[in-house]
Design a protein around this nucleic acid. Structure first.
Lengths: 245, 245
DNA sequence: TCAAAAGTGTTCTTATTACACCCATGG
DNA sequence: CCATGGGTGTAATAAGAACACTTTTGA
């Protein structure tokens, strides 16, 4: 029988890339570090995993302590274990991302959150540790996920307009979509519930409000449905020589 | 400044799902355990990570010690850290899969390999620890990968026939493909080099041999090419109510 | 001459793309 | 009455799916 104690042991952490969507922009919740190393630099919220804690639970705990939010979309992405990734010694970190509705998040709910702030992803260039690399890995995963699963709705308020939904997809996919083609496609999936309600107080024609029909999606899933959002491209989003054969 | 020593530490391992393709069947290389726990059960090859070893290096080491093969396609999939996943105490494991050409692998090359054997994935139902779950996660990842990157070629000998290639895709995707549509599609990608050589010694019309043109693929990649193998389905592969919108 | 796998085109159907104007509201 | 974003349909093109027979070889 092997003896576990004879092997190298390391502390390990979870880091959580918390995505939110606001003002047409994809954002990530970062914390300004209060101590060395990387004091006063922006970093991903994360913490050491406890002895009796599963990885997913640890990631949820990090999120709940920071935002007070539970019951959230959470996905493990990758584990970063470069020997020198932490200046004080070896620390392995398991990266997660989660999707929250910014409206649910109350910045002043917790004391930890005092140094937390939403940042537009597009503008970020650097983070403490290897966190920028981690962020990019999670962003890439989200990009892929959003095409094949209806996870985008996790980022929107329960009632939303089709234009909001389109802007969300455009922000995540970093592309432009054609309005008519997008609407045609998304409505043809029959996953949106038309609430027969309208926007109020906007200085233009008010838009219809929709809700994601989770029940229907789960029913479709059971029938072998494949969510697939690929089309509805816009001329201006074309890259060089796409040859999707 | 934080003190790393005050946090919980755990040993951690890498497990490597080594895929191979032989006789039209997708296989995985397993080891029969020589000691408790799970003595005499089949398990994934894996081992503890050393203090000065990156995760990828550890996964490569596991593969090299077992098969003697280096320079291999390797991808990290997920990290499994359930508190009770190892009966002797907490051990976190980072799962990788690798793709090798079975012809490159010499079973008798190393002493560890004495208890190693290729198993058809389709027939497996159980493995030691949580390794069956890990295997399934890696298989699922491979399924997704193979549609969007030309990784399948890593599993074939350098020269192969179109039928071998089709059978490989069928084994990974667990579906049937239409011969004519498959050929049309794969050839239209211009990623295969026709070697103008023929199979020899087969009891039927000999097939042309092809080679994957890696140079061309990398050139296409740089131009924004998107590898996408979706079509060429066969009637008999149709599932219930596919609604790919 | 038989068995076994190689090789090959066309038609139908479905999905994707491109594109421009009128509508409803608040200020 | 103006600015702002909401809402709508059609035609052209491209991709996917269905389908059957002839060829070449070794045994």
């Amino acid at each position: 029988m092997i003896e576990l104690d004879k092997f190298f042991k390391s502390p390990f952490t979870v880091d959580n890339v918390i995505f939110g969507f606001d003002e047409g922009d994809l954002k990530v919740l970062l914390i300004k570090r209060g101590e060395e190393p990387f004091k006063d630099e922006w970093a991903l919220p994360g913490y050491f995993v406890n002895e009796n804690e599963d990885l997913d639970s640890a990631a949820k705990r990090v999120l709940a302590e920071l935002t007070g939010i539970k019951n959230v979309y959470l996905e493990q992405v990758n584990t970063f274990g470069a020997v020198d990734r932490h200046p004080l010694g070896r620390v392995i970190t398991v990266a997660y991302y989660s999707l929250i509705k910014i409206s649910d998040y109350n910045l002043h709910a917790s004391s930890i959150a005092i140094n937390a702030k939403w940042h537009s992803i597009a503008k970020l260039k650097y983070l403490a540790f290897d966190h920028f690399k981690i962020l990019m890995a999670c962003f890439q995963r989200l990009k892929n996920r959003v095409r094949e699963r209806p996870v985008g709705f996790e980022l929107l308020p329960p009632k939303f307009t089709l234009t909001q939904l389109q802007h969300l997809y455009e922000a995540i996919l970093e592309t432009n979509l054609d309005k008519r083609n997008f609407r045609k496609k998304i409505l043809s999936m029959n996953l949106l519930l038309d609430l027969n309600e309208m926007q109020e107080g906007v200085a233009h024609r008010p838009a219809r409000l929709y809700q994601f029909d989770k029940m229907k999606y789960e029913q479709f899933l059971a029938e072998g449905y494949v969510f697939d959002l690929s089309g509805s491209k816009n001329k201006s989003s074309k890259k060089k020589s796409k040859k999707s054969v």
